[in-house]
Amino acid sequence: MRHFEFAVDHGHAKAVNETLGDVRRLRVSSIIVGLLFAAGAVWLYLRHSPWSYILAAVLAVAAVMSWWVSVWAPRKVGSIEDLYRRGPLVPAMVSETRPRGATILALIDIAKPETAVPHYALVVRNVRALPGHTLTEGERVPSVAVLSDRNTSSTAETWQLVSPMPIAWGTRDRGVLRRAVDAVDPVEWQLLRKNLAVSEKVRGAENERMLIDPHDLPAELLERGDDA
């Protein structure tokens, strides 16, 4: 598994990193929903009837669960340093552009560490901005893969949740971005560029990812999987 080290710019990441933004929005929405459930529970409790007590208890439990999510989500994701340190460096490219953002297409091995063979997939992510990059098709966007499962009981060989997180969301230094581009094997950039046309198809696939047939992989990637 290939990693890339650099000094994370906290102020920059807080302002532009959309992964952190997603976590903040989830936390805020969980708190608001919890407050609504709690208010509903109080209202029902004050009606002083057997059925209202039951419903109030149900809403109270829902409120606690919502507030628990607001605490659990940031801890599960970890700090921005954790995300960049744990995630493997992967190639991504701008594959589609829109008036307010773009879609990036990434090449990611979604196999878990204990899996014997690689499972390369094309994964897309819609982004609003990519500081340090031009939003033009084919722009190389070195990223790290954020890998996780929905639950700890999963026994699948591949990660359930996979998303590319651009290095550009963690630093303003263009030298770091160039170094990250060079750290990716040219074979991977070539394979990704070859598949840019399927970006829309990947967007419509389950979990916005599409496995690549091993027969379509360059020998270098298969050898890398064997060596791992």
Rank of each mutant, 00 (worst) to 15 (best):
A41D: 00
A41P: 03
A41R: 09
L44N: 07
L44T: 02
L44G: 10
L44W: 13
Y45T: 15
L46S: 09
L46N: 13
L46P: 00
R47C: 09
R47P: 04
R47F: 11
R47Y: 11
H48N: 14
H48K: 15
H48L: 14
H48Y: 14
S49A: 15
P50V: 14
W51V: 15
W51G: 08
W51I: 15
S52I: 03
Y53K: 01
Y53A: 09
I54R: 10
I54N: 06
I54Y: 11
I54G: 07
I54S: 13
L55P: 02
A56P: 10
A56Q: 08
A56F: 12
A56G: 15
A57Y: 03
V58I: 14
L59C: 09
A60K: 11
V61N: 05
V61Q: 09
V61G: 13
V61S: 12
A62H: 07
A63V: 08
A63E: 01
V64L: 15
M65R: 13
M65I: 14
M65P: 04
S66I: 06
W67M: 09
W67L: 13
V69T: 10
V69Y: 12
S70R: 07
V71P: 01
W72Y: 10
W72D: 10
A73Y: 13
A73Q: 12
A73T: 14
P74D: 05
R75A: 10
R75L: 03
R75K: 11
R75E: 01
K76H: 11
K76I: 12
K76E: 11
K76R: 14
V77M: 12
V77R: 13
G78L: 01
S79Y: 02
S79N: 02
I80M: 11
I80L: 14
E81V: 06
E81P: 05
D82I: 03
D82W: 04
D82F: 06
D82K: 11
L83K: 04
L83Y: 04
Y84F: 14
Y84W: 05
Y84P: 00
Y84A: 02
R85L: 12
R85M: 10
R85W: 05
R86Q: 11
R86C: 07
P88E: 10
P88G: 10
P88A: 06
P88Q: 08
P88D: 07
L89W: 06
L89V: 03
L89M: 03
L89Y: 04
V90I: 12
A92E: 03
A92Y: 01
A92M: 01
A92V: 04
A92P: 02
A92Q: 03
M93W: 00
M93T: 02
M93I: 03
V94H: 04
S95Q: 08
E96L: 12
T97D: 08
R98V: 10
R98I: 04
R98N: 11
R98P: 06
R98W: 12
P99R: 00
G101M: 06
A102C: 12
A102N: 05
